[in-house]
Design a protein around this nucleic acid. Structure first.
Lengths: 272, 272
DNA sequence: AACTGCTTTCCACTGAGTGGGAAATATCCC
DNA sequence: GGGATATTTCCCACTCAGTGGAAAGCAGTT
């Protein structure tokens, strides 16, 4: 019936990517209709494209017809950013073994902290971050470290935008945050207390790479033990140095798949 | 000049997927020309498609112009098969903490063992598997467990095909392998001794789910300690039961993104 | 049986995709 | 520096793959 009612400017690839993009936010399996709606791709087109993606393994159909990300995608994606993950992993593991607390490693991705690795045991601590997840820089300990040690223009640009409130405890006053960042540089570590999720606190130190900030490692502890968090500082510092040594010989850009620290603050509005 | 010299039957999506497929095997960053050659997509088309994929973050350009998988892809893909990974992770971690040996969890993916998770320290053991990687079922301890406890027709189909020799120690005789699998069922565990890589041995036990095999967990130890491997059996069994308990309430198909055990042995030739 | 929500199929029209060729750019070697 | 080589980027006329509204199919629910 209707033929080329296509909207000019849209490529097939862009539609495929729009479909993939839907799964960036949504956890659970989605119906075809939901995907079509969320991606803005017409239903029949979605149907065809999803069909191809499922056949290949990029997506997969669950038992109830729901559509999820496919295992093949996952398996392939493990090759992205392997250098840093594989190199740092044993040390993050060590950090966990020595402290018994949830240990994580994050880098800056735009104006977010991207969690690259995370080692934790069965102890239940309220967890906000997950591997592959992002959180606002100013609300997390790793983020504060990243902001504190980034080049001035990055920090300035970040503080120029309004800062989102995650919990009631999030520090959102730019002036006070700037003072806090100065203190972070002085002390060499950053902390958060229930700023991203109630019940858990965090302490982070920087990991340098050829003189600049490379990434940040942190411990997450339950609020009950927040008072004694700083006793882990020597271990954190030690592990940080071990990671520095292990990554020193690797060119910065090769560590991750992409130049994570590249784009300072993408034009997208940072405030939710 | 030349216009629609397109080969019929090829969709844009299939080309995009062909490009992604290239990165399934290759570790290092690739040049545009290499991608075009490996994927069979004409150079100029590759150029355009890769451009779009890079812009979105599916791929990324390294400092030397080399093209790799992008971090955004990695981050999104972390949502695939989360249920099993997230549920089992603390237990695999426990397994490592209790034994000090590399601990892994694998499922069957077609005729391969797909490694879902892996916890290890700084101790250096020759490693063949990696998270997201696949190895032949008959050469690995997890694979033998999977074969031993799978439904008969799966095992039969697998043994019907010629078995690849990975190292000189790989057991490739179907009759003897069948006997070995019977022994695995009897004893409740499987071992390999340098069958997949020299210098490392492995011991695995099954993890059941609603009466059937769900996945398999294993320890990898250096060949020097192979003799005393079985002393870890009680821990392995214990952790296995903990994982069983933790996953029991989750529908099997939901555990992973895709119905991993679904396709028995895809038509593809299993022998390299 | 009628209603609701979602998936799948159909099909005529057309502009997005195509890919060989060539120009621009980077890399290497003498 | 200069000439040969490899790689990336741009160009553009041709046409078929892609399109998407409409309608049929299917499974629950009332």
């Amino acid at each position: 019936m209707a033929g080329g009612n296509r909207v000019p400017g849209s490529t097939v690839t862009s539609k495929v990517l729009a479909i993939m993009e839907v799964f960036e936010t949504s956890r659970r399996a989605l119906s075809l209709t939901e995907i079509a709606e969320a991606s803005g791709v017409p239903l029949s087109t979605t149907h065809r494209l999803v069909g191809e993606l499922v056949e290949w393994g990029m997506l997969s159909r669950g038992p109830n017809g729901g559509i999820q990300l496919g295992l093949r995608l996952w398996a392939i994606a493990q090759n992205a950013g392997r250098q840093l993950r594989d190199t740092a992993r044993p040390f993050v593991q060590d950090l966990f073994s020595l402290t018994g607390e949830t240990s994580q490693l994050a880098v800056r991705d735009g104006n977010m902290a991207l969690y690259i690795d995370r080692v934790y045991g069965s102890k239940r601590v309220p967890r906000a971050s997950r591997v592959g997840g992002r959180l606002p820089l100013h609300a997390t300990a790793v983020g504060k470290v990243i902001l504190a040690y980034s080049e001035g223009w990055v920090t300035d640009a970040y503080l120029g935008h309004p800062l989102a409130t995650v919990t009631g405890h999030t520090h959102v006053n730019p002036t006070r945050l700037r003072a806090e960042l100065a203190r972070v540089r002085e002390q060499g570590y950053a902390t958060t207390q229930e700023e991203v999720i109630l019940g858990s606190c965090s302490i982070a130190v920087p990991v340098f790479h050829t003189g600049h900030l490379g990434c940040s490692i942190a411990l997450v502890v339950s609020s009950a033990n927040a008072g004694t968090m700083t006793r882990h500082l020597p271990v954190l510092k030690g592990i940080s140095q071990r990671i520095e040594a292990a990554t020193a010989h690797i060119p910065l850009e090769t560590l991750l798949g992409s130049v994570t620290g590249g784009a300072p603050l993408p034009p997208t509005d940072p405030t939710p």
